[in-house]
Amino acid sequence: MDMRLIQQVEQLYMRKDSLPDFRPGDIVRVVTKYTEDDKEKEQVFEGVVIRRRGSGTSETFTVRRIGAHNVAVERTFFLHSPAIVRLEVVRRQKVRRARLYYLRELKGKAARLREDRARAEADKQRGRQLESRAIADEASEDSAQE
């Protein structure tokens, strides 16, 4: 049967806003919402992305962080889950494989990763560009008003 139909259906349930580009090794902050006593609350989970897998609506990523009492917590999120409100990349890090399961065996200082300067720099450039564009937009708006 036609796979295009499946993709068409999946499209409807995938996120419309795009999350920033992130890779295994990057440190991210994932902000999710949940309801408690009919109140909507936000929860933050920050850690290293150790895996990205899947495609379409079932694409997921796993974040590992060291929680209280030095207990490691891994949480897997659906990339397209409507529960994810926001995702920020905190730090770009350099890794040489796609699945960072080896971090589970490492503790403390050994579990650190080196920063990926090149990609961090690229992020900064992009940020600056966006900023200058915003300023330019504002300026052109001002001149239009005049």
Partner: peptide, 20 residues
Amino acid sequence: RKVGMTSIFTEDGQHTPVTV
């Protein structure tokens, strides 16, 4: 005609297996 299976998110955010 069965088209195949996939998964969707329901309104309450649940990831649900579905047959199209």
